[in-house]
Design a binder for these strands. Structure first.
Lengths: 159, 159
DNA sequence: TATTATTGTTCATGCTGTGAAAAAAATTAG
DNA sequence: CTAATTTTTTTCACAGCATGAACAATAATA
């Protein structure tokens, strides 16, 4: 009989489930801590920081595209952008081709600040990777990739 | 000269930093999605769900211990517990040994519901692990462990 | 031209969270 | 034993995160 065998396998899996839950929870807590650290360090709310980071890849963004990238409602974006405009880090101009659209872009100060923040975040991740040796780094990245696609797969099943 | 060599190494590290950032962001998004899925499925706010899960390991909890475990202010716990009491999932009794302390415990309904939720969460994690083969599972767990301790280490440097 | 679709704002609502102040009870110092 | 201190919890004011409905302005289409 492989009843015993199956039992052992199930017990291992149950142990792994518990361990996975605990690890994910702790990692989540670390990420939350880091976000709130950056937020208080720069005195910018977390959502505004996340928004600021989007301008790294593109010069002009619209409220709609920001709402898609941050995965929040458009009305939320209005508030976030208002915060950044008040801080004079972002300015908006009306699209000359389409008066409905506001093109959002970083001010000089916004660019300076956002580059500073990008550098600090990269540095934190650099330090994190340097806690691991070269082999571990590759391994961790490929494991995270596996985890990510596993999570996406489970999400699909969930529906 | 190993200048070229160092340059190559730095480029690899920069690539890994970017990849790590992207992976972490996507995984975080998945976790957020799962939490909000459970919250709407059971019609219980996320913070209350997190609180409910604490009763798995102990029969009685105090506001103070909950605040430590959830890592939130005590005043926040008051609100969370009030929500659970209104839903008749938790009840509080005054500690006979110390009238300052309220002992919080699950009602029958609360126990039933919380066991149901625990089972569903475990099932999601089981599905996630079963997306991987046996070797990958072990690897992923040890990589998460490495990541976690790396994050803790970086957190300490941060201060 | 009239209808429909898109873009963004405003508003009401609810959840998450903090910190200061206060009330009640227990502990400790004198 | 009384007075001062500490502990536990609650209340309140505040701020941030986030949604969805309703609306106005503009553009595209029939």
């Amino acid at each position: 009989m492989n009843n015993n065998r199956n039992n052992t396998i199930d017990m291992l899996l149950d142990y792994q489930i518990k361990r996975l839950q605990d690890l994910i929870e702790e990692i989540l807590q670390c990420c939350k801590g880091q976000a709130s650290y950056l937020s208080s360090k720069f005195d910018i709310p977390e959502a505004e920081l996340r928004c600021l980071m989007l301008f790294g890849s593109e010069r002009y963004l619209t409220a709609k595209s920001i709402s898609q990238r941050l995965d929040v409602a458009k009305s939320r974006v209005t508030k976030i952008i208002n915060g950044l405009i008040q801080k004079e880090m972002v300015e908006s101009i009306i699209d000359p081709k389409d008066a409905r659209i506001k093109l959002l872009t970083l001010t000089q100060e916004g660019q300076r600040k956002s580059q500073e923040i990008v550098a600090i975040i990269a540095d934190l991740h650099r330090k994190l990777l340097l806690e691991l040796d070269s082999e571990q780094r590759k391994m961790v990245l490929s494991c995270l990739e596996a985890l990510r696609s596993g999570m996406e797969a489970v999400k699909k099943q969930r529906v």
